[in-house]
Design a protein around this nucleic acid. Structure first.
Length: 481
RNA sequence: CGGGGCAUGGCGCAGUCUGGUAGCGCACCUGGUUUGGGACCAGGGGGUCGCAAGUUCGAAUCUUGCUGCCCCGACCA
């Protein structure tokens, strides 16, 4: 049994590497389901309680390896990478610069900030062979501050915002809900450095706007809410929450948030007034989680304009002044020739949690409904009669047409029956299903199904391709992707 | 960290009370018939029943200890 599985997987690897050699200019291996690795489950494992966890397991996206620790299987990894890339592009657009810091850190840095003792059991502490105290990083304020102080000497090098996207480990007392609250999780954490408080505030606003754009691109309505600064400290903090019934926090906000439009890709991050204005628009009305909820303010809103719901936190931004720069000596020389302790902020998004949150926000009884930007593939090409000469040829033709048009299709070329293929396509939630069968082909038609609306339409192959390429251009125009 | 629960093939479960050497559905393999919303027939493979010790002629089942996992609460991307 095990041998068979291994042989199958070996064959898969070999096939794909061969394709890579034969077609070196293809962006990736051909995505034929028969040669992919998509271990789907008909029934959800019992331990999965919430719908995103169930669907991620059923759709073969993740595998639990230990409490709160997961392997990412091909389909899940593809979504994770897409989320990560959108986050990256929007960070870059806002002027942040990517670095990559290690997962393992030395305890010494944390002793400098005083957090080695404060952080408690949530921090996984490790001893290396030389008996040195190390730790698996739960966050990177200390390390980034160390990098900053090692190189930056002048106010002329500010403002600076460095970020990375790296695995974190927090030894949560109680991991749960799959990757929604894992112990190991992927986080984008950005850190801003400014000469003074005003500069830090502007840096904070830029990240605020960057987050609005990021979540808009991910197809979710994220509402910024005033938040507790918690153990990280500081006086300015917002959480970004998406509304979902399974959310962990109770949220209270004015319904006007549901209609606000995120700024478009051309937003000028160099225009401080513009950026501050956008933040103003997005903070004018009441919005808060149960932690900071102000019942008196809330009651001032007319009852029919109140939104009281559950929310999932997918981003959190902090301005914490000199909390780390002071004890760690991160200073620059100012225009006045004197040393100034830099003002800092940190800005986090958890892409691994976002993947689960997207499912919480987008699913139905048949499975996942991905937003276009994060879907693992654009189109599921469904061959209803594998082995039939005409349908095989039509599928091969459509497949290469889609590739040439910049679409990313997954071709279900297995010899499963129609019902199984439909069920699978619905489960993994690709935006489109292009259905090709002998019956339709006789009439010169294929079927195009929209996963979100469920609408199915019979049309010629040419018309179907036009529809798909138009959709792709529309996405590209909207997001510049 | 407090409270509760679970652990039997890849997944979902029965069997445990009342001890007699492991079963069902799905999945998987072979052959055949099928093929537009999770097909059918026939045959087949796969499980030290979480681990350890104990009681017993005999333990999935009883006892003790351990481990893992899940749920509720307090905390967090």
């Amino acid at each position: 049994m095990r041998g068979l599985v291994l042989r199958k997987r070996m064959r898969f690897v070999l096939r794909n590497s061969n394709i890579g050699r034969i077609c070196p200019f293809r962006p990736g291996p051909f995505m034929h389901l028969s040669k992919y690795f998509l271990p789907v489950l008909k029934e959800a494992p019992r331990e999965a309680e919430i719908v995103s966890h169930q669907l991620m397991l059923r759709a073969g996206m993740i595998r639990q390896q230990s409490a709160g620790i997961y392997s990412w299987l091909p389909l899940g990894l593809k979504v994770l990478r897409k989320v990560e890339q959108i986050v990256r592009e929007e960070q870059n657009r806002a002027g942040a610069v990517e670095v990559l810091m290690p997962t393992i850190q030395s305890a010494d840095l944390w002793r400098e900030s005083g957090r080695y003792d404060d952080y408690g059991k949530e921090m996984l502490r490790i001893t290396d062979r030389h008996e040195r105290d190390m730790l698996f990083g739960p966050t990177n304020e200390e390390m980034i501050t160390d990098i900053f102080r090692s190189y930056v000497r002048s106010y002329k090098d500010l403002p600076l915002n460095l970020y990375h996207i790296q695995w974190k480990f927090r030894d949560e007392v109680r991991p749960r809900f799959g990757v929604m609250r894992g112990r190991e999780f992927l986080m984008k954490d950005a850190y801003s450095f400014d000469l003074d408080e005003a500069g830090a505030r502007t840096a904070y606003y830029r990240m605020f706007v960057s987050y609005l754009r990021t979540f808009d691109r991910l197809g979710v309505k994220a509402i910024p809410m005033r938040a507790d600064t918690g153990p990280i400290g500081g006086d300015l903090s917002h959480e970004f929450l998406i509304l979902a019934d399974t959310g962990e926090s109770e949220v209270f906000c004015h319904k006007s948030y549901l209609d606000l439009q995120a700024p478009d890709a051309g937003v000028d991050y160099g225009n401080d007034d513009l950026i501050a204005g956008i933040v103003g628009d997005w903070t004018a009305a009441y919005a808060g989680t149960d932690e900071v909820h102000d019942e008196a303010e809330w009651m001032k809103i007319p009852a029919d304009e109140r939104v009281n719901a559950r929310g999932i936190e997918i981003g959190h931004i902090f301005n914490f002044g000199t909390k780390y720069s002071e004890p760690m000596g991160a200073k620059v020389t100012g225009p006045d020739g004197k040393d100034h302790v830099v003002h800092m902020g940190s800005y986090g998004i958890g892409p691994s949690r976002v993947v689960a949150a997207l499912i919480e926000a987008g699913h139905d009884e048949n499975g996942i409904v991905w937003p276009a930007s994060a879907a693992p593939f654009d189109v599921g090409l469904i061959n209803l009669r594998q082995g039939d000469e005409a349908t095989d040829a039509a599928c091969a033709d459509l497949y290469s047409q889609m590739q040439n048009a910049g679409l990313d299709p997954l071709y279900d070329d297995t010899d499963n029956r129609a019902g199984g293929k439909f069920a699978l396509a619905d489960l993994i939630g690709l935006p489109w299903q292009l259905i090709v069968g002998p019956r339709g082909l006789k009439a010169g038609e294929v079927e195009l199904k929209n996963r979100a609306s469920g609408e199915r339409e019979s049309l010629t192959m040419e018309a179907a391709m036009n529809r798909l390429t138009a959709w792709r251009s529309q996405m590209k125009a909207r997001y510049g992707g």
